[in-house]
Design a protein around this nucleic acid. Structure first.
Lengths: 116, 116
DNA sequence: CCCAAATATTGGCAACCAATTATATTGCTG
DNA sequence: CAGCAATATAATTGGTTGCCAATATTTGGG
């Protein structure tokens, strides 16, 4: 495969990995309402301070959020709205998968009924 | 946090993880052209047969692809077009991030020039 | 029925990731 | 500048993931 193409896949995968964590998704969801201090994020998502800070660091390094210091507080904000596009697409996918599963179950049941 | 919301984030994260691998992305990219046999996928993406098979299994389990047997061959096909929406969004994000970085570098350089 | 080709599965190992605990940094206030 | 509150950064550890090698399964052909 073209090595440049391979690099692109590496980058996409890296970005997806930065996103693929429930707590990080929760944080992004929170920040959708507007910038927040770490303390407040912490209060909402729960977990240890160190952990939340680390997740914020990962999101920041990936460029999904930015932060700005105001005195003793640090405010985080969404820097890349495309994450929400991604989440919507994923959710669509989940809904489709659920529907397919429902259909499969219905078929299986029909099969059982027939065989009675 | 609402436990139901938490479950949603778990599901999204799980799905993202299934997607967050260069080889799996390469496979999906290949399959965009149409259904393919495992052997042909193998020839294009490289790597061991076992590895490709495992990645295909992960994609299948996540519902991103389906497979159908035809004699001795198994054809895989994209089952969920939303993955491409996701990839496009991610790519947009990468482009934005790159541009921001370029700007930051330009600013830093300007600062250095000024200080001469 | 046995062989060969296509595909899947398993076991082991190294790399990576996430959570925790402890420690460091930063900025305000008295 | 001492001390506190907010945040970030190690260091450790248990669990997960990816890769490889070997083995098993499935299917068509002789």
């Amino acid at each position: 495969m073209d090595p440049r193409t391979e690099l692109v896949f590496d980058k996409i995968a890296e970005r997806l990995r930065s996103l693929a964590d429930p707590m990080r998704l929760a944080i992004l969801h929170l920040l959708q309402r507007g910038p927040m201090r770490v303390t407040d994020i912490l209060a909402e998502v729960g977990g240890s301070q160190a952990n939340v800070s680390k997740h914020l660091g990962i999101l920041r390094q990936a460029g999904f959020v930015t932060c700005r210091r105001e005195g003793v507080n640090v405010y985080y904000a969404v820097a890349d709205e495309t994450v929400f596009t991604i989440c919507r697409a994923i959710c669509e996918g989940i809904e489709k998968a659920a529907e397919q599963e429902r259909e499969a179950i219905a078929q299986a049941r029909a099969l059982l009924e027939t065989g009675r």
